[in-house]
């Protein structure tokens, strides 16, 4: 399984912070997002705004390969400081 985390506006749009999706061979971040959209249409709404991605706590892009057991986080551009 892949654990998916959603933060800030993304969490509010999709309704909860933690999700689980099935892991598959050679799956990319974009594939994980497609699976989430099939699971719950609110993920499509979350994609209306710019999304950043982290895999195992490191920023990645949508072509990055995700493995079973990874943690993938989706969130908006950051606004700390």
């Amino acid at each position: 399984m892949i654990t998916v985390k959603a933060f800030a506006q993304v969490r509010e749009v999709v309704g909860k912070e933690t999700w689980q999706v099935a892991g598959a061979h050679n799956q990319t971040v974009a594939d994980v997002l497609d699976n989430l959209c099939e699971l719950d249409s609110r993920w499509r709404a979350a994609m209306d705004d710019e999304l950043l991605v982290a895999v195992n706590h490191t920023m990645r892009d949508s072509s990055f390969t995700v493995n079973d057991g990874d943690e993938v986080a989706f969130f908006p551009p950051v606004t700390g400081g």
Binding site: F7, A8, Q9, M59, A73, V78, T79, G80, G81
Partner: peptide, 14 residues
Amino acid sequence: IMDTLKTAVPLWKK
């Protein structure tokens, strides 16, 4: 540090 923190550290203000 401040310029980079504002774009690279996962913090969000409401």
